[in-house]
């Protein structure tokens, strides 16, 4: 997404990247970023916690206003919980979170549409 942010910014649109992957964002170096210390797949907050989710966005939007130096990553201070043990299991976004020693645990990267529900496929095919 950092590459997309850079392209948008070059086209005249100010951007703010929310990110839970500090090292990946630092490498691609987007114009403005706000770091949240949350597991992958939860970049915008904990599920079913609207106030927590709004606070993530408020802090990200505040960063959009305060960052003055291109390439800055602000730490929003948003954390998953007092307990950081989720980091033991966390693995790259390039796999599905199972740090397997036996083999490649990622889901197969199939080239067909992957619907959440079978009815979605029916609706899309009818459209």
């Amino acid at each position: 997404m950092g590459l997309v942010a850079r392209a948008l910014e070059a086209a005249g649109f100010p951007t703010l990247c929310l990110t839970a992957a500090h090292s990946i964002t630092a490498a691609v170096n987007p114009p403005r970023a706000a770091f949240v210390d949350l597991p992958l797949g939860h970049t915008a907050g904990r599920p079913h916690e609207p106030e927590f989710q709004r606070e993530v966005l408020r802090r990200a939007l505040a960063a959009a206003e305060t960052i003055e130096i291109p390439g800055t990553i602000v730490d929003t201070g948003m954390v998953w919980s007092d307990d950081d043990s989720w980091k033991d299991e966390a693995t790259s976004g390039l796999n599905n979170g199972v740090n397997s020693a036996e083999g490649d645990s990622r889901r197969a990267r199939v080239g067909e549409p992957q619907y959440q529900f079978e009815e979605d496929r029916v609706a899309a095919d009818a459209g």
Binding site: E9, A27, V28, N29, P31, P70
Partner: peptide, 14 residues
């Protein structure tokens, strides 16, 4: 991983 060490493009907030 994509590495872009150059100064990123910049459009100020209007």
């Amino acid at each position: 991983w994509a590495e872009r060490p150059d100064t990123p493009p910049w459009t100020p907030l209007a």
